[in-house]
Design a protein around this nucleic acid. Structure first.
Lengths: 333, 333
DNA sequence: ATGAAAGCGCTAACAA
DNA sequence: TTGTTAGCGCTTTCAT
């Protein structure tokens, strides 16, 4: 039991609780000698301030909540690192919870974090529903979305422009050929997939290509999913020469799936991924992909949240971070 | 301001705060009619219990602290998912902090979590020093180590037997050849590297091979580090036919580094990794490796912590989880 | 089954 | 510069 309280320190140092509190909180209104004396007693007694009591009295907990689909995914764990680094910089702790993009879990996590009196919430998810919006609007503390689109464009958020990125990637793939690259994606329920598809389709239409739905494969957005999707496509009657894939991990599955069937990448089939996670370099040929600054998304989102929490002036409420095509060896030239 | 308190509910429902508290805490000593009435008011008013106040009064916060080297690493993020899932199951929230295995940061994180009155701490780190031990021994709440060795064998912990695993992997590589496989590792400061090296050396000695230090390469434990290490080794005068590598990611670097120099894996050079992370399957040839149940380590460690927090009977305090060799295509049968 | 009341350890006016 | 004193919102005896 660390039952040494501010009161014990006060008594031992012959000052009032208030003075001890001032010392602990670096309030300048304390005579240096007094400060020294109090600090000495604090050290002797091994006093440790109780943040819970402080939180109750001050109505600030210096902790923020982060709701994340799955911390074990490469994408989100890197994003989380960005969040945490900035949080630490601003002296916040982070309560992290996984939602698996399950709406009920998300809502209940928001409530549980609010009960814990977090000073702010960072939300990452698949789709923002009305219920979400409702929760956020009535939240007593600020909420910022990271890598999560708000269809109503009304919540503070940090994203990249998925539609534009997918458009560029697809255009690059098309080049002068005017044939439709295949598209390997996941559930459109996930807003980012939806937007990537929109960009893909716009690239087709701007290139004068009529969309053939058979060239769009939906599956799990992971290695196995990619492998299955490409092999199904390759065994069809279509002559696939190019594929745009919504994530890097899925792309690795696509590359290996094609190679296992005897296709050469990029000679027989070109592959472009998305995210530029570390694994994009860990494959032969190395993966051409769209760089998405995951760490930065987390960092910027957290920084934005601190502004709201401190009631600072906020410039942009909807931040779009830049993306960039990274050409490697899985595409020709 | 969610300034609706238990007191408001009490007044509105014509009962005392105590009764509202009982309802909120599912205390059975409440007449069903009263309960219903209170629940109704809670709903009407949109009352949300204040966990901070509860924490102060009850001296329990139902949150645990997790200190982790780096959440963005595949290894730790998977481990963390195990922690979080079990924490959720037992109704705990988790405050997560990255230490980068910096001792000062680790110590200060422990203190900061203790100030926040966490009910327990899960610690993951490189090396446990005397200072750590001291902190843990004097901690008012239980501490459990995950994937972290305690040289004094005195703290509760969950690990696998790295020495034995490395021994097996090395023996397998040696086979009947009696030649020393190369060993690609990181800093011995990291206890797991130290133990893996011990297992490696024991395998040599039990095979009657005299250790040649030149066949041990130390570098960064990541993709680039692996690539650099193998290429340096391959350009030496030694005829390298086998390599044991301390992590999977490093192994991918080794495989590609060798392939880039024209070597064939496993024909010219066999590679065995460690961890069996997802990327072990995302390489050609697929990686032979030692499976380490990362998710389970986290899950079991968290479960162990709950036992301590609830003052349940604890059987083993030092849990060793099983490991297993997974033979794939980067080694010859 | 319910209520009254004393804290939990701290902050933040306000006074001095 | 320092001290006094109310709370913060809840749990938890102890009565009833």
């Amino acid at each position: 039991m660390s039952n040494i309280t501010i009161y014990d320190v006060a008594r031992e140092a012959n000052v009032s609780m208030a003075t001890v509190s001032r010392v602990v909180n670096h309030n300048p209104n304390v005579k240096p000698t007094t400060r020294k004396k109090v600090l000495g007693v604090i050290d002797d007694l091994g006093y440790r301030p109780n943040a819970v009591a402080r939180g109750l009295a001050s109505k600030k907990t210096t902790t923020v909540g982060a709701i994340i689909p799955d911390i074990s995914s490469v994408f989100y764990s890197e994003l989380t690192r960005g969040i945490e680094d900035i949080a630490t910089m601003y002296k916040y702790d982070t309560i992290l919870s996984n939602s698996d993009q399950n709406i009920d879990k998300e809502i209940s996590l928001i409530n549980s974090m609010l009960e814990k009196q977090v000073d702010g919430i960072l939300f990452m998810g698949g789709k923002i529903t009305e219920e979400h919006i409702n929760q956020f609007k009535t939240s007593p503390v600020p909420v910022v979305l990271a890598a999560t689109y708000d269809p109503t464009n009304t919540l503070p958020s940090v994203n990249i422009d998925y539609e534009a990125a997918a458009f560029e990637a697809t255009m690059k793939l098309i080049g002068n050929e005017k044939v439709q690259p295949a598209f390997i994606t996941g559930d459109d329920y996930v807003q980012s997939n939806y937007l990537k598809r929109a960009g893909y389709e716009r690239a087709l239409s701007e290139s004068g290509i009529t969309l053939d739905e058979n060239l769009i494969a939906k599956g799990q957005c992971n290695y196995d999913g990619g492998m299955k999707s490409i092999q199904k496509l390759l065994k069809s009657d279509y002559d696939i020469k190019q594929v745009f894939v919504v994530t890097d991990e899925t792309s690795l599955g696509v590359i290996h799936g094609a190679q296992d069937l005897g296709y050469k990448v990029p000679e027989d089939i070109e592959v472009t991924g998305f995210n530029n996670t570390r694994i994009a370099m860990m494959v032969r040929p190395t993966l051409t992909t769209v760089m998405q600054p995951m760490y930065d998304i987390g960092a910027v989102a957290m920084r934005l949240l601190t502004k709201y929490m401190n009631k600072e002036e906020v410039g942009e409420t909807e931040v779009i971070l830049p993306h960039r095509m990274i050409e490697r060896d899985s595409t020709k030239n």
